[in-house]
Nucleic acid binder design. Sequence first.
DNA 1: TAAACGCTACCCTTGCGCCT
DNA 2: AGGCGCAAGGGTAGCGTTTA
Length: 318
Amino acid sequence: MTVTIKDIAKSAGVSYSTVSKALRNSSLVKQPTKEKIRAIALELGYEPNLAAQVLVSRKTFTIGVVWPSVDREMQAALITLLNNQLEEEGYTTLISINDISRSVKAFQRLQVDAMLIFDDQQHQDTLPKTTIPTVLFGLKERSQFPVIDVNRHEAVKKITEYVIEEGALSILYAGLTEGEDPLQAAKFEGFLAATSSLQGATAVYNTKGLNRLDGYKAMKAILQLGSPPHAIIFGSYDLTVGAIDAIHELNITKTNHLRIASYDNMSGHHELTFPVLFTGVPLTIIVETLVDKLLQAADGQPVTSISLDPVIHPSDIL
DNA sequence: TAAACGCTACCCTTGCGCCT
DNA sequence: AGGCGCAAGGGTAGCGTTTA
């Protein structure tokens, strides 16, 4: 049978109000009374009833996250870090990989305190109406909700300009270059913006996906070209990892002077077996910002959109 | 008689006001 | 100051009443 504060009150010979205050270390209860009540609670194995606490506090201490998938290493790393940091703040993270409408309906019923949506949807009107304080991880210009924008366009533009300055005369962008995902389009447009006035050769490879296998296939195809490019910029971390698989399989070494760059700033998180230049907002900064904004939203505070600055960072191996 | 509807009590915690 | 009594909060089971 569940032990409640009424059982403790009966055993201690005080009212249940006093038990509640004693367990919350209220100054309105004498120290000896507190100690007696705590001892009885411990003896009876008392655990506060979450449902009742939710009723009173009107908070569930849960954050709903609508995530497209967790099969990409970058997304899994980000969600793991986010979960850990929210846990430290006393929150439980509920992740849904259903479509946005179903996820939001579920989170509405579960009464989560705030919600994070990974906004890679094709159209803004797919975002359902909700009373839950919501933060988007997407593109700043796209939403009625506050957005955390990691400036994908600028990240890819920066890295492209960087490799041009390094002396790359031919550059290839490998990523999702078609389709309606605005996040991937932003990256590709960043590449186009940086190479619009380039004298050297540019090329594009549509990977048709963002997973490791897509990167592997892309790299094998690219390296079989008559004259491979000096630099290849991959549109995601997972593509880059897959590309490195292909590089090793084909016995390409650093001495081949092939420059590999990658969107998704995973520097400091993983060691790669081939030198890579990362571009993007570091994972830790993204997660810190997400947690900060989500806690603000959960507390009912107004949340403003923010655009984070991408940085270029080499991998551990050079 | 069954279905539909409305009302009440209960779950548990905690803040507030009042009493000793 | 220390302690008690009461009410509130959302959802729901259970009961009673009304309607078809």
